[in-house]
Design a protein around this nucleic acid. Structure first.
Lengths: 154, 154
DNA sequence: CCCAACTGTTGAGAAAGTCAATCATTCCGT
DNA sequence: ACGGAATGATTGACTTTCTCAACAGTTGGG
């Protein structure tokens, strides 16, 4: 004994029990993707969060703040400051929901849509880098599998 | 009546552009798994973070704090407080690395190993719930795909 | 032998998350 | 139609997590 017995790990954490833990892999992969995304979006003075809001409000969906909170899994109060900031930059507007006067519908301005157009490129490029080791079809199945976890009971 | 023109979205965010964005799916899936994991680990007074440290130090790997930081993608200072807390609870010990007097090797105590044994059950059950919509083979491929994203250039 | 690099630690400040309270509005049962 | 319960947005306080810079002790290479 003695010798080779403890050679188990110079970089032995890779063989650790956590490496089979999907939740851990999820956390680490997310951390990597988030860091890359934030770095790429920084040139547009955006972060993943604000970018997401901008994308969601640039489409046809006209979400309320509550819907944004639910979709992004944020506290409603976080959506308030997120929208506050984007609105102060003229990228987004709060419009009264004609169907419910309590609710605000958040919609991107032309400037917001223009910015998200550019930002989308940076985001895409960052994702490309993060998933460089995956083939196109692997990315597709990854997306599908993640979707069923991210949106349960579909 | 008023027609169907704006029927685009009651829950129309699900059809949004973000739904194809792997980084977003990663973030949302992670948020869900993390919440479930933390809830399940709470009965052992653990969180995902401390649980991870406990698992990593319960194996044969004998990681240094720097290695823990790198593996968990944390700032070294966060590992300090993480280990501080676990040590104060008698679950983990700091041992001097005989090969490098700067470094601490972190190793779980018997109590730590005992606790992680129970906690593993709760964690497994939580993950089971989170991935209920996936078959066994789907979970396996998800794990594989996530691994290549979480550990680039393998 | 020195100097650059590295480990763990501390501390401060920014950012993110959590939670309760409030106001206006809407919804629902009666 | 009324009144109470529930909902959307907002505010503010508070905790947790993140990020950084500085520092002491140690290592390693030129």
């Amino acid at each position: 004994m003695t010798d080779t017995a403890d050679t188990i790990a110079p970089e032995g954490l890779r063989a650790s029990a956590l490496t089979d833990d999907v939740s851990f892999l999820l956390a680490r992969a997310n951390a990597i993707a988030l860091a890359a995304g934030n770095a790429a979006l920084a040139e547009h003075a955006l972060k993943a969060r604000s970018y997401s809001v901008l994308v969601l409000t640039s489409g046809e969906a006209r979400p309320s703040q509550r819907e944004l909170a639910e979709f992004l899994r944020l506290d409603p109060s976080q959506v308030v400051s997120l929208v506050d900031e984007l609105q102060s930059r003229g990228l987004v507007e709060r419009k009264p929901d004609p169907a419910d006067r309590r609710a605000n519908v958040v919609v991107a301005t032309d400037a917001g849509r223009a910015l998200v157009g550019q930002a989308r490129e940076s985001a895409r490029a960052a994702e490309e880098r993060v998933h460089a080791d995956l083939s196109e079809s692997e990315r597709a199945t990854l997306a599908t599998l993640l979707r069923t976890v991210a949106f349960p009971s579909d």
